[in-house]
Amino acid sequence: MASFVTFNPAIAADAAHAAGAPKADPAKGGSLYDTGDNARGLPACASCHGAAGNSAIATNPKLAGQVDTYVHKQLVDFTTPARNQPIMTTYAKMLTEQEKTDIAAYLFSQQAKPGAARNKDTLDLGRKIYRGGIADRGVAACASCHGATGGGLPAQYPRLAGQHQDYTLAQLQNFKGGARSNSPQMGALAKRMSDEEMKAVADYIAGLK
């Protein structure tokens, strides 16, 4: 299984609270994730991202087990031009800071269901890029930031293990084309990759455990 290195969520939560950030309430986050808020016209997150964050829709990301600080950052970024996506931008702007924190904590506490690579013909290429990068074009190994098993690095880099191929590929293409600009590092790296390389690494990531 993908690991979160030596991250202790309780310590991280206490540190964030001490620094003035809202203290996370995963139970409230789970309730909002599952049911939304009809009074505000806010739909259940689960309707797109699946029960407990395990999306069954290939174009919608799996969020179960995702690093809480990363989820929170993305919800904030959706309210800015750096990551403008019509559906998520609309709903992220409806959430309070506390609700963003609570939903992120809830998702981090959920168990992610594994995915699987689909294309055996590109598996070696995907593995090579993920583990070793593309040296002659300055593409760093994905593992150097996201971990050997795709568990991510809390507070900095997201969990990737088991993510849908279609979603990962779409994000790499968004970074490359500039539609997504909330990570300068990923924007620079994606611009150095071909479509074939992005497809291969996205498929390899889907099979990481």
Rank of each mutant, 00 (worst) to 15 (best):
S31K: 09
K100W: 02
P61D: 08
G133L: 09
D166H: 07
L107E: 07
A141D: 05
I205C: 00
G187N: 11
T149P: 00
Q110S: 03
A2Q: 11
Y157T: 04
L160G: 03
R83L: 08
A117T: 15
P114K: 04
A200H: 11
L169A: 09
G138F: 02
L189A: 13
R118T: 15
A148S: 12
Q98L: 06
T59D: 13
R180V: 00
A58C: 03
N38E: 15
S109R: 04
L32G: 08
Q98G: 10
K128L: 12
P81T: 05
H17C: 12
R159W: 06
G20N: 11
R137N: 12
T6L: 12
R83W: 08
L95R: 03
A56Y: 05
G132S: 14
S181I: 04
G20C: 10
R137G: 08
A21E: 15
G152D: 10
A202Q: 05
T59R: 05
S183D: 14
C45E: 07
I11L: 14
A170R: 12
C48L: 06
N119A: 12
A24V: 09
T79K: 14
Q171I: 05
G53A: 09
G150S: 09
D14W: 04
M88N: 09
A18E: 05
K28M: 09
G30E: 05
A21R: 14
A155L: 14
G151I: 08
Q163N: 07
R159C: 01
T122I: 14
K176E: 09
T35Y: 11
M94P: 04
K209R: 09
F4V: 09
M88I: 03
Q110T: 04
L172R: 11
I87Y: 07
Q171M: 10
D166Y: 02
A190Y: 03
H17S: 14
A104L: 03
V76A: 11
A148N: 11
C142R: 08
A13W: 04
